[in-house]
Design a protein around this nucleic acid. Sequence first.
DNA 1: TGGGCGATTGACAGCGCTTTCATTTGCTCC
DNA 2: GGAGCAAATGAAAGCGCTGTCAATCGCCCA
Lengths: 360, 360
Amino acid sequence: MKEPRYSGVNLNSKRRATLSDVARRAGVSPVTVSRALRHPEMVSEDLRQRIDAAVRLLNYIPNHLASALASTRTQIVGVIVPSLTNGVFDDYLGAIQDVLNPAGFQVLVSNVRYSDQLEEKAIQTLLGYHPEAIIIAGVDQTERSRDLLRHSGVPVVQTMDITDDPIDLNIGLDHTAAGAAAVRYLYEQGHRKIAHLTARADPRARRRHAGYQRAMDELGLSSEGLVALQPRPSDIEMGGTLFAEVLARVPDVSAVFTCNDDLALGVLFECQRRGIRVPDDVAVIGFNDLDFCVASVPTLSTVSTERLKMGTWAAETILEIVRGSGKRPAKTQIDVGFSILSRGSTAVAATKAEKRARTA
Amino acid sequence: MKEPRYSGVNLNSKRRATLSDVARRAGVSPVTVSRALRHPEMVSEDLRQRIDAAVRLLNYIPNHLASALASTRTQIVGVIVPSLTNGVFDDYLGAIQDVLNPAGFQVLVSNVRYSDQLEEKAIQTLLGYHPEAIIIAGVDQTERSRDLLRHSGVPVVQTMDITDDPIDLNIGLDHTAAGAAAVRYLYEQGHRKIAHLTARADPRARRRHAGYQRAMDELGLSSEGLVALQPRPSDIEMGGTLFAEVLARVPDVSAVFTCNDDLALGVLFECQRRGIRVPDDVAVIGFNDLDFCVASVPTLSTVSTERLKMGTWAAETILEIVRGSGKRPAKTQIDVGFSILSRGSTAVAATKAEKRARTA
DNA sequence: TGGGCGATTGACAGCGCTTTCATTTGCTCC
DNA sequence: GGAGCAAATGAAAGCGCTGTCAATCGCCCA
């Protein structure tokens, strides 16, 4: 008895149909088949039907590698993200695919897990596929990564952050300004002891932290003991742990700004565990506006960023360039800004009104 | 003034270096360069160094497409997932990449958003890249999808679910059994009015629902008014909405089993909003064991599945097959089972003890 | 000192497709 | 009725790389 084997790996079993197989079957030349598939309007109705029949009969699927090699159009766009676990990048990736897939482009995603080294390797690997463009999150690539990208000769879009010195195209927002704005918002609500919790100091989180610090300084507030930092990747639980640290040092902390929503939710849970009322005793504001922000109790205030727009613009701009045979677009940089969503976890008067209404 | 253009698209500017460029530069033949890169041990030390120097000088990056075409080894594995938003698939994908990337394989991910139609298209597209294997979540592909996969001649691993009629290899768990087990667990805790909330009726969620129903029937319990179903994709908020529905029909519902953790968390929040105590008034159990289950207040009981193991096994088995030149592995199907994690949201005695301790 | 062997290197063909240019066919028009 | 033209099809070349086999170069031993 022979062991079963896979034909894709075992060469002597029947191989997949090729263009020529289809051509032979339909009684035409290979070129005609190619045309019938790529530019059906250039082929007579009669042949087109015969060819379609042969394609179906043979289960023919064009070899994209061969096609890309011959045409020097790979129809591939490389996308580099630092994380998939993070809800932010799902939406962003989805937006990119929604634009690119219908246009016939395949997205090659590389998750580099916030590692510069993996990022360099990913860029190299990606370039091996000769993508027609690269979309990369962040503006803090290593010098080698920047070199690779610049030498690649393809459009590069840096997203999620903004810089004076983009590799090529750039859409993002100023995280320092966003961090500062969150602090100022809390200040206006009457808070003075404003804490900041931050985890996995990726460049954007670091900028938000810097923004926090700058605003505190400008407002003449001391941040002594109010900052808790954890180099490990953030998760919900960690929000509680970091808040506990601050609480131990500054028991009368009145507001918390976290570098992302996960930590903020963790703070919410920790408060619940300790019987600390939010927002009455402590106000909480997160960053990103993930789904759960509107579902939690209380709802979570947060800094909202235009992650869908960043993905969409990156993808659309690439299509424009590729279709316009390489012409650079009019706009090469966009600051999408941010906005502060004021919800239950930082409510001041509203909460009290709500309470009054309930007890009434 | 000339408009700036991208060289990758504009043909008359300098193109990327090829093998031959490197060969010319190093004064050797192209084959030798190829060997120096693929099988360095077959080339003399002297040449290897000259070639490496030329590679670096020219910023040479091998064209993976050409290499794959010539060698008929693409080093690509296609992975089809129904969602990325869902925390489950991040972990799973991560596990697959952790095995495959170090082995030199590139993972081509396709997110088909729970759509059969997109899945068919994705399979077709993927096959165009001649992957060496395909890993696909679920066992409920359309007949056409199954045909495509079978005819592809490459190993196919179906994951996340288990079936009597696998396309090829299969690792997963019995969702019907898992749903039933959750119900029985609640029953043993003394619950009788057990509700089930379910959203986006994907096949696995449907099986969990069937399991719920079967167990209820077997236990002689009525599920009248206790099931809330919503075809839209689930999110945390929806957990609250669905629970409210049930509550309106059956005010004395005593336990809730949800088709995933998101809904369960939503139920938790809804209870908090309404002043319903969990687990004292209502017990809650979710499905999947996502991160937040251990962070929430109370912690969330859930049915835990081995998503990492499923990804790892799928990837490792593929490597085994590809390296073993197509030999099928000894084991072609694995049931990884599931386990019920009993935590705060379903605690009985424990909660009371805890409370006593606190008030003491 | 010459045959033979292993270690290196190169020539050639071809992976499956597309691009370019040539050829064929069927008409129209004066 | 033949020049002229558009539409449809095909032939040849080549995208960048690798597999196969042939050629070359020492170097060892009889």
